[in-house]
Design a protein around this nucleic acid. Structure first.
Length: 426
RNA sequence: GGAGAGAUGGCCGAGUUGGUUUAAGGCGCUCGCCUGCUAAGCGAGUGUGGGGAUAAAACUUCACCGAGGGUUCGAAUCCCUCUCUCUCCGCCA
């Protein structure tokens, strides 16, 4: 959420920015409501002051056993008027709040201007794109031949866009989770947490999934609970409604969770394989930092995520998302895209964002700067470190051999009982 | 699922026959004094958010005692709904 005062004082800039993002919102209504709100507020507060003053007088009169009936009668009318004004005020505040809730974050000046993913700018590339002297297979063929991926049985159990991992496939998934958590906790200084996978509405509002993106979520029948679409939601909300000490900052968390997405509106996209699933595993990185350092922290977060791919020997590139492609809550986002030989393209495997104080304001996450009495909102950041399913795909496709087996990357061997390659499901 | 108790400022904790408590006191924190240093001691200050005013402040006002409604001239205090925590019982991995 943007600051009400910021929007008021920078209305033209806000209009311009939401136009660049392609958002249609009536900000003239915002200006009108804002004025009306302040007028009503002043009128109501004047009457409340009067009521407070006279109430004290009534108390004194009663104590002295004197008559206060004329004061009480007068205040009865004032109370009625206050009620009316408060009602009107409430309407204006709700309307303003609704607009604020649907206003996306302001992009950082370094974010490239553009309307869709084609306008994203490539920042860097790492690794050699592997050449094969045979025709590389897609992961669904590799996985099914080895017997480690079973899409048919998963659809029997649940439906489309779910996968059953078996044998070394299941073990590889588990190995990746452990490898990533170990790397981030032991070498990158993140603290590991294992949060709830179901959250309430308020948590979804704080991180920005609600109220605008309800259709992307799985909601529990009859409850105001949702399955998490990313660990960002429960982990960022760890400090909801807290005032952190500045000596505690920065705070780094890493968490493994499954992620649940309804993938509404993506029918027909990536229907084969496990690129786009309703349920997938992810190791997430989340930071709480002071505003002054948040953009340096974003660069650090990106490097921490990249390191996973480097150790696995998987080629990738990094792109900076343009104004039209950046997420609702983010001020700046880098995507890491891994090379998939079977698809002959780069596919997103991590998304690293700085939300500045957008989420912190919604979740009321603050800190007290050293030696100052005023509290400030922290800046929050997060990034995938990495999406597990897509990493597994990348390993299958990049490490595949002509005979259909898959070589195990060096760093994973100790997590897979020392095996050199996957030759079958058991 | 059943029964009971509770939720007050960064933390602890008084206040519930409605009206100088428009939240006592303590801890913590900040500043000052004192003092070889540290500690202790003494003194002062110290919540959050929204308005108004100002060049900025000083200043001024409203709201906030888990959340939301209600009663009343007036609610931390009375009533209703909800959430969470604790204790006991039942069930369960």
């Amino acid at each position: 959420m943007l600051d009400l005062r910021f929007v008021r004082e920078n209305i033209e800039e806000v209009k311009e920015q939401i136009k660049q993002r392609g958002v249609a919102l009536d900000l003239d209504a915002f200006v009108r409501l804002d004025f009306e709100r302040r007028d009503l507020l002043q009128e109501a507060e004047g009457l409340k002051f009067q009521r407070n003053t006279v109430s004290e007088k009534i108390a004194r009169l009663k104590k002295d056993k004197k008559d206060a009936s004329s004061e009480i009668a007068a205040m009865r009318e004032v109370a009625q008027k206050i009620k009316e004004l408060d009602g009107k005020l409430n309407e204006r505040e709700n309307a303003l709040n609704r607009i604020l809730m649907y206003l996306p974050n302001m992009p950082h000046p370094s974010v490239p201007i553009g309307s869709n993913e084609e306008d994203n700018t490539e920042i860097k590339r790492w690794g050699e794109i592997p050449r094969f002297h045979f025709n590389p297979m897609a992961h669904w063929d590799i996985g099914e031949k080895l017997g480690i991926l079973d899409f048919e049985r998963a659809s029997k159990i649940t439906g489309a866009r779910f996968t059953l991992l078996k044998g070394w496939g299941a073990k590889l998934e588990r190995a990746l989770i452990n490898f990533m958590l170990d790397l981030h906790t032991h070498e990158h200084n993140y603290k590991e947490v294992l949060p709830p996978f179901i959250v309430n509405r308020q948590s979804m509002i704080a991180t920005g999934q609600l109220p605008k993106f309800e259709e992307d979520l799985f909601k529990l029948e009859g409850l105001d609970y949702y399955l998490i679409p990313t660990a960002e939601v429960p982990v960022t909300n760890i400090h909801q409604n807290e005032i952190l000490k500045s000596t505690e900052l920065p705070i780094y968390y890493t968490a493994y969770t499954p992620c649940f997405r309804s993938e509404a509106g993506s029918y027909g996209k990536d229907t084969r394989g496990l690129i786009r699933q309703h349920q997938f595993n992810k190791v997430e990185l989340v930071k709480f930092v002071v505003p002054e350092t948040s953009y340096d922290e974003l660069e650090g977060l990106l490097v921490d995520a990249e390191e996973v791919l480097r150790r696995l020997g998987l080629p990738y590139r990094v792109v900076s998302l343009c104004t039209g492609d950046i997420g609702f809550s983010a001020a700046k986002t880098y995507d890491i895209e891994v090379w998939l030989p079977g698809q002959n393209r780069f596919v997103e495997i991590s998304s690293c964002s700085n939300f500045e104080d957008f989420q912190a304001r919604r979740g009321n996450i603050r800190y007290k700067p050293e030696g100052k009495s005023k509290t400030r909102f922290v800046h929050t950041l997060n990034g995938s470190g990495l999406a597990i399913g897509r990493t597994l795909i990348a390993i299958l496709e990049n490490y595949q051999q002509e005979d259909g087996t898959v070589t195990v990357p060096e760093v994973l061997k100790s997590y897979l009982r020392g095996i050199e390659k996957i030759e079958g499901w058991i």
